[in-house]
Design a binder for these strands. Structure first.
Length: 260
DNA sequence: GCAGCTGTTAGTGG
DNA sequence: CCCACTAACAGCTG
């Protein structure tokens, strides 16, 4: 469930289901999900209620009526499930029962998800050294981030300490849209390429977010839906190739995105 | 059986 | 300090 657009969907889901309901019961799962003692989570949540939610990068902050809030990171397979029946879903790592007897479970089969307690999202951002949210990023801030950086552009885009919210999939999409090879070094980018990357960060994330929220398909000229080795390039420019960048499997079109 | 996967982190090495 | 790469985490899929 993980990059910014998918977390935006989880935020919408939470907003529609679990706000302003008194938490009557707290059931916790695997200890490794919990970044503070489970007892602290129980004490903080019991009898409390969620008031609002806020997203930063891939993190979702659920503000409580009293005592800060709960921060969720979905890892690769985390998600929220809201339901009216008794039995919690498989892989539930946190289950809350509300006063109206409805329940929500935070599930995660692979247990890569994390739950934190925080006083505020701003405090959490500071404590965890998270960068600016990718959708709030200003052009001058982006250009400042690019100066004096050594590595590949894809590595930079995925670095959550610089920009929060972009992962493996949408880093590839941004670079495909700008026709830039993912291994291009940041200091080899032209001004025009930098401007394109800035523009496409906003555009790709907005487009995908909208698609996720509305359950729509992605545009025909997007790489994401055909992200597979030997797939046809959406621009009909040959076949998609696979490589590794910053340790992550990377897809690109060698003809649209030639290496320098 | 085996490889690969949207995430982060620790360790190694340049 | 910056950056690349690997392994690890755990379960499912092809």
């Amino acid at each position: 469930m993980p990059e910014l657009p998918e977390v935006a969907y989880q935020k919408k889901y939470a907003d529609a289901t679990i706000l302003h309901k008194k938490i009557m019961k707290v059931e916790t799962g695997d200890k490794k999900i919990y970044q503070s003692p489970k007892k602290d989570f129980e004490d903080r949540l019991q009898g409390n209620q969620f008031e609002t939610t806020e997203r930063l990068g891939k993190y979702l902050f659920l503000k409580l009526a009293k005592n800060g809030g709960l921060v969720m990171h979905f890892g690769m397979t985390g998600k929220l499930e809201y339901y009216q029946h008794e039995e919690p879903p498989k892989y539930a790592q946190l289950t809350l029962t509300f006063q109206d007897h409805s329940k929500v479970s935070f599930t995660c089969p692979r247990k890569f998800a994390r739950l934190y307690l925080a006083e505020s999202l701003a405090q959490f951002q500071k404590d965890h050294d998270l960068g600016i949210d990718a959708l709030a990023l200003q052009k001058d801030e982006f250009f400042k981030i690019l100066t004096s950086r050594k590595g590949t552009i894809k590595g930079l885009l995925m670095n959550q300490k610089l920009i929060a919210g972009i992962g493996n999939l949408y880093a590839d999409e941004v670079l495909f849209q700008c026709e830039i090879h993912p291994k291009t070094k940041v200091n080899d980018l032209s001004e025009k390429e930098k401007a394109c990357i800035y523009k496409e960060i906003g555009k790709v994330l907005e487009v995908v977010k909208e698609a996720r929220l509305e359950g729509k398909n992605l545009p025909k000229n997007y790489l994401t839906p055909v992200r597979e080795k030997d797939a046809e390039c959406p621009r009909n420019n040959g076949k998609i190739a696979q490589t590794k960048v910053s340790g992550r499997t990377t897809y690109f079109c060698p003809n649209c995105q030639p290496e320098n």
